[in-house]
Amino acid sequence: MLSLIQREVVENKKWASDEEVLDYYAVAQCTPGVIAVNTATFIGYKTKGVLGAIAGTFGVVLPSLIIISIIAAVLQNFMEYSIVGHILAGIRVAVAVLIINAVVTMGKKAIADKLCAVIAVVSFIVSVIFPKVSPIFIVLSAAFVGLVTMKKGGEGK
């Protein structure tokens, strides 16, 4: 996604430089929400202000809106056929594997030390035992733990 944004914004439209796009991307990772959307919003804002931000956001989500609506509508109509059930049963296995792999990839980046490992394990156990506990509660608790264990004058890492 980033390379696509870079090609379009830097090379084709010349709205920003390579460094600027990387900066926007870095900032987008530190704001809540979907990173690609944040990057598009940010580039839109830097290029054409509030209207640019809205246009950028709208543009980046529109393909998803159209494509997913079509697929969801089609799938809804094919659900009665038993073969669709079999296909989806196979796909469920693939999705489980994909998410396991994603967890491993994320874990390598996110778990930098023992404290991170403890936070990850506790979050895992809490969400398994209490499936209805709000993820917001877990996110805020994790932020709290991070902040209270911060060393004075530390670099935040």
């Binding site: 991170c116 490992a117 990850a120 979050s123 670099e155 935040g156």
Partner: peptide, 24 residues
């Protein structure tokens, strides 16, 4: 900002742990 950095440092493992529970 060091507080923002620190929050993200501890939120990311929490998100990872929660996704692991979805994987399970």
């Amino acid at each position: 900002n060091k507080f923002v950095k620190r929050s993200f440092y501890s939120i990311r493992p929490a998100i990872t742990g929660m996704i692991a529970s979805v994987a399970l």
